[in-house]
Design a binder for these strands. Structure first.
Lengths: 156, 156
DNA sequence: GCAAGTCCGACTAAATTAGTCTTATTATAA
DNA sequence: TTATAATAAGACTAATTTAGTCGGACTTGC
């Protein structure tokens, strides 16, 4: 399809959570997973991947957990997504070395490469800090009423 | 991941081919698949999907084949992709009715929805006509030399 | 030193996607 | 009218990707 993997999704949730508890203690995978009703082991897996890629830092031991490695304003959604899923490429053809078997005859490659860069641009623009701000707004709205339908129509 | 499906890829190739042979006879699935070295049956499957969605029109019979339903300038990459893969949604949460189990607690939904719309915007901007133009440029360049590496660095 | 709690990496299972095969339908051409 | 060449559609298999699990290693605190 054209979808973010669930892991990347969880990764964004986790990183956002860490951003909002930045000044406090390190958050364990257990704590985060519990808060959002996600499988603990799966969340742990996502976090350790983020740690390996340097997005978060892990602290071992009984009081351990994870913390953001950088300032929330310095971490983009693209950083998180590509840390978990690898480089964002909308087609296999787009990769630097990648030539699919259709190679020279395939003329959609160049236009798609341009589209790919646009998407990278969008994703790298959005920072964790922005996503956290947005959360606060929504939380306030949620307090004033349930607000189910309406207010968001997708342009299909 | 975050990748276009192969079928969508093939769909774009096929539609582009049809755009470039617009004034001529209808192109059969066999002809297109052969030209790009793709499995005939798979290409047929992709084309019949595009026909069902109204992107191309099918002509039965011995001199039959496929033709573009609209002007190449009126068909966007998004039209082709969503015809084959369904609506483009970067997360399952983004859908109109869709509430993942994390529902209210998940605060990444709104920011991601915005990102999703940006991507839709990019994809709907690119038309088949543009992609065909681009092809012609590349063909000319290909004549003057192999040109392998260089000229495109991805921002990773 | 010992125990509790955490991270880490390899492994297995499930779901999605890619691709194939077969049969039916349609329209042209002889 | 009959043969031929094309699309249409569905079931089916295989491969890849993604989701989720398990046991081991490490660090802290008692």
């Amino acid at each position: 399809m054209f979808k973010l993997s669930k892991k990347a999704d969880y990764g964004l949730i986790a990183v956002k959570h860490l951003a909002m508890h930045r000044q406090e203690h390190a958050c364990s995978a257990n704590e985060i997973a519990d808060e959002y009703g996600i499988s603990v082991t799966l969340m742990a897996k996502v976090l350790q991947r983020l740690a390996r890629e340097g997005v978060v830092v892990a602290k071992h031991g009984s009081t351990g957990g994870y913390q953001l490695a950088k300032d929330p304003g310095q971490v983009s959604a693209l950083d998180v997504i590509s840390a978990i899923d690898g480089p964002v490429l909308i087609t296999s053809c787009v990769t630097s070395h990648g030539n699919c078997e259709t190679t020279e005859r395939c003329s959609v490659r160049e236009p798609l490469r341009r589209v790919n860069e646009s998407i990278l641009g969008v994703l790298s623009t959005v920072t964790i800090a922005q996503m956290s701000e947005d959360t606060n707004e929504r939380a306030l709205v949620a307090l004033s009423g349930p607000m189910r339908s309406g207010s968001h129509m997708s342009s299909s």
